[in-house]
Design a protein around this nucleic acid. Structure first.
Length: 730
DNA sequence: AGCACGCCGACT
DNA sequence: GTCGGCGTGCTC
């Protein structure tokens, strides 16, 4: 037989495929998209076959032979491979690692992909036994005859025989255990039982009709619906006709939004089991949902970020709920954005994509306003919850204790005395902030860019993260001459320790990603809160997501300025989303909720706009600002990060990367600058930001650059990575 | 990324 | 005399 070589993608951080000789015994059965076990160095790796060819460019002595063919059918379809290949190019991440992330852990480890079920078959002795010889035990005889023609699944046998009977024949050596491939049973469309649905309003009906109109091809919808406007009801009605046709629906939700109630709502409406994928599952549980989805046995699959990789036999629609949520962006390794991956997947599969949010990302909103996506709005709020009152507290010249103004402390006391709960929001700590004058509120700004400087304590410098300009820290305010400029948000870090002295005897609880880590930890904390075990709640973004706090009557956001004057240009957008989400969650019909913002700039146009005109209006204003500043979504970015024990090395590496890009048209590079969190775990972190007006600009320049970078001597010494469409500059 | 090889310091 | 530190280099 002729020689055959397989090009295999392996989970290693290298941008090449690896050639292996295919043993002649496997040449007939091997195909693209199957997994193989191959020798690699002195270990064995599971890889995926991406090419088959009668020849290879590699020297014969280097070629090894693949060890095992792990599948008899492909685990990744042509379409999926095309999708992942695109992703590997777009994110400039090695294809082998991309494929590795897209597979469930069990498959990465080489476990079989087909679902197996326990079954029973006759042994040689069993086949030689005359059924008549068992005439004295008719049940045993019946079982023997049942197995005579073919092995039978365990579950099926139990309908007619007891397990002790099977055991008896096993002990006699006539019957033995075996495994049969599970036969898919995709007959759920026939079992749909629609529950009563609420009467939908005009906006909802319009949205559902619009979606139904485009449901047989790729199209993208942005459903912009204020909190409580019934987005989920639109999802339910939009997928109803698809499910009836036997089409499957994949729903992505934020990490924190995947509650039993969410899942139940879909289950109850259609009377169907829903496949659920989240981080708390075991490898086997994930694998089962993956298999059921692939075999078409599930109509609805709900999951967090990585659920975007769930294979579907007959895809009907993808829904991304709370599409603005930052948990859709992977923050290490391959930094993909599940929402963006969903757009490309929907286009390849030729199915509609529905993005829903009360506070859409500026990216999606821009696509909707420019007509790239269809824009659907839900503006009326169902139910009678009272709107939360928003108010601003001017911090200029105020006495602050642990970041709280005296007037605010009194207000908090009033609410506590009334028996209500109070929620205090602080931004994540450790960020490089702007420098602000507490007397007049003046913020040092870069003259060239009109943007605030960022304070980098270790260098004792102000740096503009927009153009890279640096200057020394001024001794006094350039506006009013006041001496003693302070970083924005000073004191809020000590808030938690200070609360016990400010509010003695009041039970305080902190909720952030650390304290809420672990299975069900967050939920038990939330239960405690709603049962009234704590009166003062301190938290970050996590508190605002998807949970209701009926007894909270006062919400305070301590350092609004931190977001208004952050080097992270998305901070204002995130703040606006936070405020809007919180306003939708606190209080209840009989308690008038209050939301207070502490700021040195109560007249700031973005704040004023948000408070008076709401998120929808604010977002459009913010988009205009982005357009003027040529920031995303009106430009495209890629961020190189580097990290080393010595700041010099991290900096020098990025200087060399910048050097490789020198003189390229249509591409600007900013930096290297210290990361907003300059140091982490004792290592210095620097960043180099690339920006282009066109997406293809970034792509073209990155093409080929990565392999050049890998050849730099420093590339092996510093930890470095590329983040495409960066969302977070920490 | 792993995993080896390789060449310099404190220990049974 | 060795155990072990992590720098460097390779993996079809």
């Amino acid at each position: 037989m002729n020689q055959l070589f397989a090009q295999v993608a392996l989970p290693v951080p290298m941008r090449s495929l690896f050639d292996y000789q295919v043993p002649s015994s496997l040449q007939c059965s091997i195909a693209l998209g199957m997994r193989v076990l191959v020798p690699f160095g002195r270990r064995k790796l599971v890889g995926v076959v991406l090419g088959l060819s009668p020849d290879t460019e590699l020297a014969a002595e280097k070629i090894k032979t693949l060890e095992t063919l792990l599948d008899d059918a492909c685990v990744l379809s042509d379409l999926t491979l095309e999708w992942l290949n695109w992703a590997s190019q777009y994110y400039q991440h090695p294809l082998g690692e991309v494929i590795h992330t897209a597979l469930p852990v069990s498959l990465r480890k080489g476990q079989p992909a087909v679902r197996q079920q326990k079954a029973w078959q006759l042994t040689d002795a069993g086949r030689d036994t005359e059924p008549a010889s068992l005439n004295r035990s008719p049940r045993q005889r019946a079982l023997l005859e049942r197995l005579a023609s073919a092995p039978q699944p365990h579950a099926l046998l139990l309908q007619d025989f007891t397990s002790s009977l099977i055991k008896k024949l096993t002990e006699k050596g006539l019957v033995e255990e075996t495994y049969l491939e599970h036969l898919p049973d995709p007959d759920w469309p026939a079992r749909i039982e629609l529950a009563d649905k609420p009467k939908s309003n005009l906006e909802q009906s319009l949205a559902v009709t619009a979606i139904a109109h485009g449901s047989d091809r790729y199209s993208c919808f942005l459903l912009e619906g204020v909190t409580g406007s019934g987005k989920t009801e639109v999802y339910l009605q939009a997928i109803e006709p698809l499910l009836a046709e036997g089409k499957q629906v994949l729903i992505l939700v934020p990490e924190i939004g995947l509650t039993p109630q969410t899942v139940q709502r879909f289950e109850l409406r259609f009377g169907l089991p829903v496949g659920v994928l989240h981080s708390g599952l075991t490898d086997n549980e994930r694998m089962l949902v993956w298999q059921q989805a692939r075999e078409g046995e599930l109509g609805i699959i709900i999951g967090t970020r990585s659920a975007i990789f769930t294979p579907l036999q007959s895809p009907g629609m993808i829904i991304v709920d709370e599409e603005h949520d930052s948990s859709y962006k992977q923050q290490d390794g391959w930094r993909y954005h599940a929402r963006d991956m969903a757009v490309v997947r929907a286009r390849l599969e030729g199915i509609p994509l529905l993005l829903g949010s009360a506070t859409p990302s500026l990216e999606s909103l821009n696509n909707a306003l420019s007509g790239k996506y269809q824009h659907l709005s839900l503006k009326s709020r169902a139910g009678g919850a009272q709107a939360v009152r928003h108010q601003l507290l001017d911090l200029k010249g105020q006495k602050l204790e642990f970041g709280l103004a005296t007037a605010m402390q009194q207000r908090i006391r009033q609410h506590l005395q009334a028996g209500h709960q109070v929620m205090l929001f602080i931004n994540r700590r450790g960020y490089a902030p702007a420098l602000i004058c507490h007397q007049c509120g003046h913020v040092e700004e870069c003259r060239r860019c009109d943007r605030s400087y960022t304070l980098h304590r270790s260098l004792n410098k102000l740096q503009c993260h927009h153009c890279g300009d640096a200057k020394t820290v001024p001794p006094h305010c350039t506006q009013c001459g006041h001496v003693g400029l302070q970083p924005v948000g000073l004191g809020t870090e000590q808030l938690e320790q200070g609360l016990s002295s400010l509010f003695p005897g009041i039970s305080t609880v902190r909720i952030d990603s650390d304290s809420a880590r672990g299975k069900d930890k967050l939920h038990s904390l939330l239960d405690e809160i709603n049962q009234g075990a704590h009166q003062l709640l301190i938290g970050t973004q996590i508190l605002a997501k998807g949970h209701h706090f009926p007894n909270v009557s006062l919400v305070v956001i301590l350092d609004v300025d931190g977001a208004l004057y952050s080097a992270d240009y998305r901070a204002a957008e995130k703040l606006a989303q936070l405020i809007t989400q919180v306003a939708g969650r606190a209080g209840r019909a009989h308690i008038q909720g209050e939301l207070w913002l502490q700021t040195h700039h109560p007249q700031h146009p973005l704040l004023q706009d948000l408070l008076h005109n709401g998120y929808q209006h604010f977002a459009r204003l913010a988009l205009q600002e982005r357009r003027f500043a040529a920031l995303p979504p009106f430009s495209y970015q890629a961020l190189f990060r580097s990290e080393a024990n010595e700041a010099r090395q991290a900096h020098e590496f990025l200087m060399q990367v910048k050097g490789l890009l020198a003189g390229r048209q249509g591409l600007t590079s900013i930096g290297p600058l210290p990361a907003l969190m300059e140091k982490r775990q004792g290592r210095y972190r620097m960043q180099l930001l690339l920006q282009s007006e066109h997406r293809t600009g970034i792509q073209q320049h990155l093409h080929g650059l990565m392999s050049q970078i890998e050849k730099l001597p420093l590339a092996g010494k510093v930890r470095w990575s590329l983040d495409l469409d960066p969302q977070d500059f920490t």
